[in-house]
């Protein structure tokens, strides 16, 4: 099980990294093409948007798995002194997050369906809009699974291999 969790981590991390690098490169090539050769990539504008979406929801898996979201830890020290309360608090927070990101995944899926029913396309990018939307939905569900995985790891007291926790840092 932990191997599967790690494997998905590797996969989503790669997608996030690749799409992020592509965003920079597409912008660079588009501008260089336009300025130097009068030959911009017509679809850069919309492609950047799609890449941003893929990068975000691909990266969400690791963020869920390693509690990478930004939160207010003002009372953290105090909570640590009340372990019983802290366990209940942790479970409550976990549920709130599960509810929110579950709804996000479900309604991105619904949004992809709506877009497909509408027959929506992009202005310049030669692909139907529901295609990247469904990709976002799949990644969002994976991220949701990452959240469930974190719950399972916490409850069973297991941990992922050393080094995997690096993502807990934000910034």
């Amino acid at each position: 099980m932990t191997a599967l969790i790690r494997m998905v981590r590797g996969l989503t991390d790669r997608i996030a990294m690749a799409t992020l690098m592509l965003m920079a490169l597409v912008t660079f090539v588009d501008v260089a093409g336009r300025v130097l050769f009068n030959e911009p990539l017509g679809f850069a504008y919309e492609m950047i948007g799609v890449l941003l979406g893929l990068a975000t929801y691909a990266g969400l898996y690791a963020t869920q798995l390693h509690r990478g979201h930004i939160a207010i830890d003002l009372l953290e020290d105090r909570y640590r002194r009340w372990p019983r309360f802290d366990a209940v608090r942790g479970a409550l927070v976990w549920l709130v997050e599960a509810l929110f990101w579950g709804l996000v995944a479900a309604w991105i899926t619904r949004q992809a369906g709506t877009s497909m029913a509408y027959g929506e396309t992009f202005l310049f990018l030669p692909v139907a809009k529901h295609v990247p939307l469904y990709a976002l939905a799949v990644l969002a569900w994976l991220a949701f699974a990452g959240h469930l995985a974190r719950g399972w790891l916490t409850v069973t007291g297991r941990s992922l291999a050393p080094g995997a926790g690096k993502a807990e840092q934000v910034g």
């Binding site: 017509g42 679809f43 504008y45």
Partner: peptide
């Protein structure tokens, strides 16, 4: 515009 040799640029 592309057909006539111009460089179409998209943007909001």
């Amino acid at each position: 515009l592309k057909d006539v040799g111009a460089v179409p640029v998209s943007g909001s």
